[in-house]
């Protein structure tokens, strides 16, 4: 467990604007997985997702360096919203069909500690997580959107309500149904609530 006090995002942004590149590196490493996953769940292609992730951070760099960054909001919500908008723009421009083509089979979840896992256990975890991402994509669009905005893009329910033009109760209801449906789909797919599958 990490017992050191973590520097806040806000402090890292200030340091970065003052010219500290290490602060930016920390920000990127702290948020890259959420930004990447947010995009990946929309564009469904790992290479495109990496390109758009780079675009999102480059946009953020320009905003921060030019002094236009608004410190009122959370950095995580802000960067994930940039990523979400870029992914939606890309999706609309490309008019992609919602094919599920997520896995290229080459990546492991390097955010997790797998040192004690056997190759077979590793494969089970990879398969489970890949299947879960596929199931998220089969949720109705309005539910998937709220789940991604809240869980991966770190937006509050009020921010989601404002962004999607609905009441906070509707946003909460959509999240509730997203989780209920996801749970049902998991049970139907034999993805059990097995802690060994997701503990770090």
């Amino acid at each position: 467990m990490n017992t050191t006090t973590q520097v806040s995002d806000s402090a890292l942004v200030s340091l970065y604007i003052a010219g500290n590149e290490n602060a930016f590196e920390q920000l990127v490493n702290r948020h890259k997985n959420k930004v990447y996953t947010t995009i990946l769940l929309i564009v469904k292609d790992t290479y495109t997702a990496e390109d758009l992730m780079q675009d999102a951070f480059i946009k953020a760099i320009h905003t921060m360096k030019s002094g236009r960054y608004n410190e009122e909001g959370k950095f995580s919500s802000w960067i994930c919203r940039i990523a979400h908008n870029l992914a939606i723009d890309f999706f609309r421009k490309e008019k992609r069909s919602p094919m599920i083509t997520l896995e290229d089979g080459s990546n492991v979840f390097n955010t997790m500690a797998f040192a004690e896992d056997s190759a077979e256990q590793l494969q089970v975890k990879e398969d489970t997580h890949a299947r879960l991402r596929e199931l998220i994509q089969t949720l109705p669009q309005s539910q998937r959107e709220v789940l991604m905005m809240r869980h991966y893009a770190d937006m509050s329910f009020q921010e989601i309500a404002d962004a999607t033009g609905v009441s906070i109760n509707t946003a909460l209801g959509r999240m509730r149904y997203a989780l209920i449906n996801l749970r049902k789909k998991m049970l139907n797919s034999n993805i059990a609530y097995d802690k060994n599958l997701y503990t770090e």
Partner: peptide, 10 residues
């Protein structure tokens, strides 16, 4: 927790 574990790294 399960949704967290589905995070993927670039």
């Amino acid at each position: 927790s399960l949704l967290d574990s589905a995070l993927k790294s670039p």
